[in-house]
Design a protein around this nucleic acid. Structure first.
Lengths: 152, 152
DNA sequence: GTACATTTAATGTATGTACATATATTTGCA
DNA sequence: TGCAAATATATGTACATACATTAAATGTAC
């Protein structure tokens, strides 16, 4: 498969600037990666936000997390953790109960089923090599530097 | 404001590799840019997908477009153009009528109101300088090269 | 020219985001 | 103590994505 430059992919010839082109390119590439990632998740009946929440819960385990902590750690700061939790609880991958110290909070824990699911997914994702294999180590570093600089 | 590296932003220390880090970084940066862009759009009562459809319609104008053509040109290939069109028609920014040559298709046109809205938004977006101003021309070029390579 | 496949768009359902608001609990301060 | 402000989470609504299905029109093969 031939390398497709962004202007070929979206059939737009004229960008105002390289910066403008890069902006479109980032959105486009993020979507490309998201689609690839969703395909890996689908057999496990889980979505990317749900997976992210589960990973954070595993990181805390066996200490309970709160909605607040999950919100802070999520990539998408405005994602609605309450409703993502609804799904995880229904699937039996996490539990939610009122925190005894502060009854406004909820103690959230990953279940054994959740831990097992993550373990299976780890293996699957290793095999899938979802990483950015096309880039050399140096290129990946440079990409990270440039992306960090954009958000400065 | 200090430069925040991706590992600081999401409070995750250990990435498996630079490529893995770059992957998270792309998703994170895309979201960052999306939030900035949405803020620009909000005063005009329009969303990013709606804006993208309108721009394509302007590019075709006065030739009508079809749902198919819009799908092909959209950044997000799986976006549901039918329902985005619903919103644009309600707002009076585009029209939709059966194509006489092929009655399965619909001829979609941007209205004068749609053209005026885009003109106003062009001005606003120039002022906002939503582009990636932090990067030099060379850096933006390099970023585009790396992103294109990821999708190779 | 009828039967079957393909194309084009719309619709249904589950999930998630964005944003405002609501509800319960705790904290702080007069 | 009592009451307002702050905090933690949940809910409501509009919009969008992801994916499957449907419906109508058109193309094609016999």
């Amino acid at each position: 498969m031939k390398l497709m430059r962004i202007e070929d992919e979206i059939q737009q010839k004229a960008f105002k600037s390289e910066g403008h082109k890069a902006q479109i390119n980032i959105l486009y590439t993020a979507n490309y990666l998201g689609v690839k990632q969703a395909a890996v998740f689908k057999p496990f009946g889980i979505t990317l936000p749900q997976f992210n929440v589960l990973r954070i819960l595993r990181g805390q385990h066996p200490t309970p997390a709160t909605v607040n902590l999950l919100m802070e750690r999520m990539l998408d700061k405005t994602s609605n953790v309450s409703r993502i939790m609804d799904k995880l609880v229904v699937k039996g991958l996490a539990t939610r109960k009122q925190c005894p110290n502060d009854r406004r909070s909820v103690d959230i824990l990953i279940t054994d089923a959740g831990l097992e699911l993550l373990k299976k997914m780890d293996v699957a994702m290793e095999k899938q090599e979802i990483g950015l294999n096309n880039l050399t180590e140096k290129e990946a570093q440079e990409l990270n530097r440039l992306l960090d600089k954009i958000r400065d």
